[in-house]
């Protein structure tokens, strides 16, 4: 009877401290969450929720005729055999293999030059090379679009002044290098800054030791600067790889003046954009975005692994 009755003193007495302890534990648990909450809320709403929603979308097909229905992995199997998507992916892979090394070597050269302390007005160079990164990429692409224009732009004017026919940078063969040039212009400064700041933290003692050993400037670059730049180079490479696969702004801005060359699937992101905003294929577009995201993660991971392995050896 006493066991069943909730109001007996015995039960209350024995349960009291336990309950107290439990409540305390609960409170500490929630205090922790309280501190995490601001980050967690942003993380959930800005990162997790869109990804979950995109994955959810990618499992459906919403048709003009027939409406919305669950499609399982049908969108994914379609993406894997979609020539439009893969041609865009290949184009970006080619872009990456050519543009990223060119950009990083340039950035490296500039960083060495500025770090060498042989330049007058070094901060001026640093700032002016970094400046394009501060220009919004839409404005940058518009500006280059104007410079490239054979009818209305700088190139067209040069042609008219000198009665020449310069090759059209927005033509079939040159448009990819032309876009690469815009991207390089925009990001050389950014990468230069990464390299430069990495160079600044090399301890002076090492340079002094090198000087005592009679090492020349090239030797110092080869044996001191380059090895200590390795982590910075890895970071810059991973950023650039991700940036290349995500290429969107430049083709999107140039599209109106080079419709035929860009088309609707020039880069995977541009393709996903057109699918959802011109074709109302939100589901397939989400699929493309997810596949592209996973591929980017894989490539970035591989680059990092290869870079690390080199470091350990």
């Amino acid at each position: 009877m006493t066991v069943l009755s909730p109001g007996t003193g015995l039960e209350a007495g024995s349960a009291g401290p336990r309950r107290e302890r439990r409540r305390g534990r609960v409170r500490t648990r929630w205090t922790g969450w309280g501190f995490l909450a601001p980050f967690l809320l942003v993380f959930l709403f800005a990162l997790v929720a869109p990804i979950v929603y995109a994955v959810y979308l990618s499992l459906f097909q919403d048709k003009l005729i027939g409406g919305n229905r669950f499609a399982g992995l049908a969108n994914y199997t379609e993406a894997f055999k979609d020539p439009q998507f893969w041609s865009g992916f290949e184009r970006m892979a080619l872009f990456l293999v050519v543009q990223v090394p060119v950009m990083l070597v340039l950035a490296l050269g500039v960083a060495f030059a500025i770090d060498s302390a042989r330049l007058h007005w070094a901060p001026l160079y640093r700032l002016s090379i970094f400046l394009p990164y501060a220009v919004p990429s839409v404005v940058g692409a518009l500006m280059w679009g104007f410079l490239y224009g054979t009818q209305f732009g700088l190139l067209g004017q040069l042609d008219r002044w000198f009665h020449t026919t310069l090759p059209d940078p927005l033509g079939n063969t040159l448009i990819l290098p032309a876009i690469g040039n815009i991207v390089t212009w925009e990001y050389v400064g950014y990468n230069m800054l990464i390299f430069y700041s990495a160079l600044r933290v090399i301890p002076n003692e090492i340079y002094e030791a090198a000087e005592l050993d009679n090492a020349g400037a090239w030797r110092i670059i080869w044996h001191i600067k380059l090895p200590s730049l390795r982590p910075a180079m890895l970071v810059a490479t991973v950023f650039s790889v991700i940036g290349s696969f995500q290429l969107f702004t430049e083709p999107a801005v140039i599209f109106p003046i080079a419709k035929d060359q860009i088309g609707s699937a020039y880069t995977p992101n541009w393709y996903a954009y057109n699918l959802s905003f011109n074709g109302q294929e939100y589901n397939y577009s989400a699929t493309i975005a997810i596949v592209m995201g996973v591929l980017t993660v894989i490539v970035a991971y591989l680059v990092q692994r290869i870079g690390r392995r080199g470091q350990e050896a």
Binding site: D260, S264, N278, G279, Q280
Partner: peptide, 21 residues
């Protein structure tokens, strides 16, 4: 076509390319 708007948006991929080349 009952989906002419989308069809027109992918015109550059084929016919536009022919004009360019």
């Amino acid at each position: 076509m009952p989906f002419q708007v989308y069809a027109n948006s992918i015109y550059p991929d084929s016919v536009g390319k022919a004009y360019a080349n």
